[in-house]
Every structure is written in C-alpha cells, then in structure tokens.
C-alpha cells in the first residue's frame, strides 16, 4: 500500500509540474508582463529594472523554478485588472465557491445514491421508471439552461428564492460564510441544485446499474437464503459493494463540480472564483487565470489521490493483509 501511495503521489506531482509549466508559460509568453505592468510612459531603464526585478533576464528553467517556488507559497503576482495580489483576491472568493461546491456535492451524493438505490430496488415500479426517464432529459440539458429555468420558476414566477448573489454573509476569521444567515441559506439553494443536478443524475444512474449488478450476485442470494432482512441486504450487503465504482466517479465528479461552478456562478452572479475566472478571461487577466488553473489542478489532483486511497478503506481485498500472509 505504501508503494502504491508513493507512486500515486509521484504521479500527482508530475501532473502538477506540467500544469505549472502551462501556467508559467501563460504568465511569461501571453502578452508581455512588462507591457502590462508599466503604463505608457516608460523608459528603457524602467523596463530593464523591472526585467531584473521580475527575473525575466534569467534562463528559463530558473524562472520556472522561481515561479513554482512563489506558487507553492501562494504568491501568484498582481492582477492586471484589479491591481491587487492575486492570492488576496482568490482568498476572498474561495469561500463562496467552496460552500457552493460542498452543498451541491452533498446534494448530488445524497439524492444520487438515494434515488439510485430506490430505482434499483423498485426496478419495475412506476416512480422508478418516471425518474429514469426524467434523468435522461436532465443529462442532455446544458447546465446554464437548467439554471435559467430554475430562476424563472422560483425567482421570477414564484418569487420564493433570490435569483442572484450570495445573500448576507458573516465573516469568521478570514472566511465569509453564507450558512449563518437566512438570506444566505436561501440564496444557495438554486445555484446548488443547478450545479449538482448533472452530477446527481450521473451518480444515480451509476448507483442504479451497479446495484442491479450486485443484487444478482451470489452473495446476495445467499444473504436472502439466510433470512436476512431486506434492508440489511439492500444497504449493508448490496450498497456497500457498489461503493468502489461509485466513489471513483463521485470523486471525479466533485472535481468537475468545482470546474462547472464557473457556469453556475455566472448564471447566478455568485461571487466565487469561477466568476472571477470568467472575468479574467474576458479581460485577459493572465495572473488570475494562471492562479486559477494552478488552484483547480491542486484540487483535482488532490481529489484523485484521496479517491485512490479511499478504495483501501472500503475494499479489504486491496489491503495487504497480514493474516493471509501469515496463514
């Protein structure tokens, strides 16, 4: 297991280095950083001085090394557009995105697994069939249309929920949370559903097909033959055995949630890093783009790593077992 973990960690680092190279190249070659930082009135001496300060006169590998060192320390330079450190801006925006991603992730997992189990157990029921048909439509709907539809129904027509923004937030340390105010909680409902719906559908369909597969397994028949209760069979025996593939997909989907938050945040004008990224693209704010890329890669790679390690805690067959080695 240790060898496996090390190998995974090593692979993750390689991926991050490659992404870092992409981010650095953007930084270095897309637009001239000197151009962007100095105004119209500049002298050759200014340029030379800044070039020296930024280390742009040094060989490429050294510049890359410096970039990585800064990145590890959370220093991504100054936003061209806001003229503030990128790290500060990201730190301000991150709570909004993370809270949104967490709520929609929980929503997707809770309803995805629940409906998946339900549609598998009541395979031929009317409700299960209806859910499956609707889910097919849900997969082909683009996210932003779902968001707009929800806004139209719940904000425009019914007026129950706000259509944009985070509502009131409370600051706890450096973290601004919307979980502690009524308006903050109301504001997160629509964006979280919009963001989580696609993932929920995927998880539901996966859980259903895995459950149907597992319910045919011999050990489920054997569990039935031993007179175990249906609930124990469905949840303790069957559901647990579907978890390995489900966790793989769910883990990757959680990464996707953070990426897809860009779309949802734009629809709902949710003040998170996704909206920041879209604005950065519109105004070619390279440092923000590069920092976002690095940030999201770390999250992706981290999630992948955690997913791999989670297998071990679920499936004993993957563990190196001492008792078998002894016996």
């Amino acid at each position: 297991m240790l060898a496996f973990t090390l190998q995974r960690v090593f692979q993750s680092i390689v991926v991050l280095l490659v992404v870092g190279l992409v981010a650095f190249s953007m930084f270095r070659f897309v637009g001239d950083p000197i151009d962007n930082m100095l105004g119209q009135e500049r002298t050759d001496a200014d340029i030379e001085r800044l070039r020296g300060e930024l280390g742009l006169d040094q060989p490429f590998p050294i510049q890359y090394g410096k970039f990585l060192k800064n990145a590890v320390q959370g220093n991504f330079g100054i936003s061209y557009r806001q003229a503030r450190p990128v790290s500060t801006i990201l730190a301000e925006r991150a709570p909004a995105t993370l809270e949104l991603a967490a709520v929609s992730g929980l929503f997707a997992i809770f309803f995805g697994v629940g409906l998946g189990v339900f549609t598998a157990i009541r395979r031929d029921g009317f409700a299960a069939n209806a859910i499956m048909t609707i889910s097919l439509l849900g997969v082909s709907l683009p996210t932003f249309l779902i968001g707009i539809l929800l806004i139209y129904v719940f904000a425009v027509e019914l007026g129950w929920l706000p259509s944009f923004g985070r509502g009131d937030t409370v600051k706890i340390g450096g973290w601004s949370t919307g979980f502690l105010t009524a308006s903050g909680l109301k504001a997160i409902i629509l964006p979280a559903i919009t963001l989580g719906l696609y993932q929920m559908t995927l998880i539901m369909r996966l859980v259903r097909s895995e459950m149907l597969e597992v319910l045919r397994a011999d050990y489920i028949r054997f569990a039935r033959a031993r007179g175990l209760k249906e609930r124990a069979i469905n949840f303790r025996h069957a559901l647990k055995n579907t978890l390995v593939p489900v966790i793989t997909v769910t883990g990757l989907q959680l990464g996707a949630i953070i990426a897809f938050a860009i779309i949802t945040e734009t629809v709902f004008q949710w003040p998170g890093v996704g909206l920041l990224f879209i604005n950065a693209i519109q105004f070619v704010d390279i440092p923000v783009m590069a920092a976002y890329l690095m940030l999201i890669s770390v999250m992706f790679v981290g999630i992948n790593l955690i997913v791999d390690l989670l297998y071990f805690s679920i499936d004993p067959r993957l563990r190196i077992d001492r008792s078998a080695a002894e016996g």
Partner: peptide, 22 residues
C-alpha cells in the same frame, strides 16, 4: 491522460483565454 483529468469545457475556456491573450 492529463487533459482527460480536466473537464473539456474548462480546457476550452483556458485555451480561449490564452488565445485571446495572444
């Protein structure tokens, strides 16, 4: 493989942003 790790729409956005910068 690395590209597959990231959702296509994110990759497209990034490329769009870089290309726009160039």
């Amino acid at each position: 493989d690395v590209q597959l790790t990231f959702p296509a729409i994110l990759v497209a956005m990034l490329i769009f942003g870089i290309a726009k910068g160039i």
